[in-house]
Design a protein around this nucleic acid. Sequence first.
DNA 1: CGGCAAACGTAACCAAGGTTAATGTCATGA
DNA 2: TCATGACATTAACCTTGGTTACGTTTGCCG
Lengths: 240, 240
Amino acid sequence: MSNAFVERLRGYAPLSDADVALLTKSCRTVRDVPAGHHLIREGDPPDPVFVMLEGWAFGYKMLPDGGRQILAFLMPGDFCDIHIEVLKEMDHNIVTLTEAKIASLPRAEMEALVDARPTITHAFWWSQLVNQGVLRAWIVNMGRRKSEERVAHLMCELYIRMRNIGLASGDQCEIPLTQIVLADAVGLTPVHVNRVLKKLRLAKVMELKAGSLNIIDPVKLAQIAGFDGNYLHGRLQKVG
Amino acid sequence: MSNAFVERLRGYAPLSDADVALLTKSCRTVRDVPAGHHLIREGDPPDPVFVMLEGWAFGYKMLPDGGRQILAFLMPGDFCDIHIEVLKEMDHNIVTLTEAKIASLPRAEMEALVDARPTITHAFWWSQLVNQGVLRAWIVNMGRRKSEERVAHLMCELYIRMRNIGLASGDQCEIPLTQIVLADAVGLTPVHVNRVLKKLRLAKVMELKAGSLNIIDPVKLAQIAGFDGNYLHGRLQKVG
DNA sequence: CGGCAAACGTAACCAAGGTTAATGTCATGA
DNA sequence: TCATGACATTAACCTTGGTTACGTTTGCCG
């Protein structure tokens, strides 16, 4: 199986064989880490660039009152920000959600790649834009949608992202979120997330059970969510 | 008075005189536009890079049900994303909030600058990071804070940003938001924003009246907001 | 000056979602 | 086997913030 990171970038720009070779070589340092392992903690000096090769992670921020807000989910091919070398310290945490295979690219090497390889740079820009698009979509989600729509929208996003990297088959895919994690992502309480999931299940729209998402009625799901996947800029953007 | 855009970038990286001259020259095309003028509409092909020299603007997204979610406020020195040339079309709108002076830099010229001038590129990266930090802060705000905290937090952000560009004197500054706009930024209704503002006013924390913010008790305001301005990476980051 | 449009201010009522807490399920490991 | 702990489920109750509706203020333009 080939490198999820390289594959992702190939989807964003027409990398040459030389580009691919360079990127692949940069991923030589790979670790297996268990679920719940922190890759980055708030306050850390930013060091290598972490790349998800297998498994999921998420970025989050804690509030003084103990609340947690999840800011992004990372799935295979996703990576931490490349440009943070300008920062003195990280302003959020990143932790694995499942067992994961993580490559660490030395920041200097990353810089060198960007300087030497315009096509690679282009691919990074593109991925940067997609990430910003996701952040904006989350703001819209939290600001203007109600619970059911919010959960539905996040499920659409995650499903499409999984499908774009070839990890969804049919209307089903592995989405390893507990209701607690889901709640911290959509800005609700776990109790209410449970209510929402029940409602979606009874309405025969979707089921999320044991880390597995099953979309029963894709059209209805996208309708509820008001989902338009353009911001993900994948090959296959629309549900239904 | 010098160019707000160039000043901003100077704050992010040590630009040489030559860099400054190039950037200044790029801003030769300047327009005066009235309040409520759209710079960018969803669906437009992305063309020049818009730079705010004077006045405010904001980016937003409409929902099918007519709801509007504001995604960002642009103040002098801020600019639209540089890298969107990879996109086929814009995925959100940008409109002026006040009369404004706007420079339009041809995208090709921007590219050339980035290719030729590493320090300028560095400054753009930094500003990109700040923008992402702001987006993340908004997600936290909407997901995990209640109305009073939300409004307080946004006011802190805007005040500090204004102070960073020298447009706040003492505990006062011009923040040209109507309650409707504010509501669409924090994900509340105008009616409730009004309640919140009243409460903050009666508690002698802050007043927002006729486009002017007056912070009466900066420490209390920052406390309510749970504000930590690190993500803005300005020189003067903390209130109180 | 008068009339109009925007924005602000308030009140009464209501619903979405938070809180608390009890119970169920299931995998793990001693 | 039983204890443990994490997660899911559900119910009763309550709070925050949304809805609707209307009055007031302000600034602008004929």
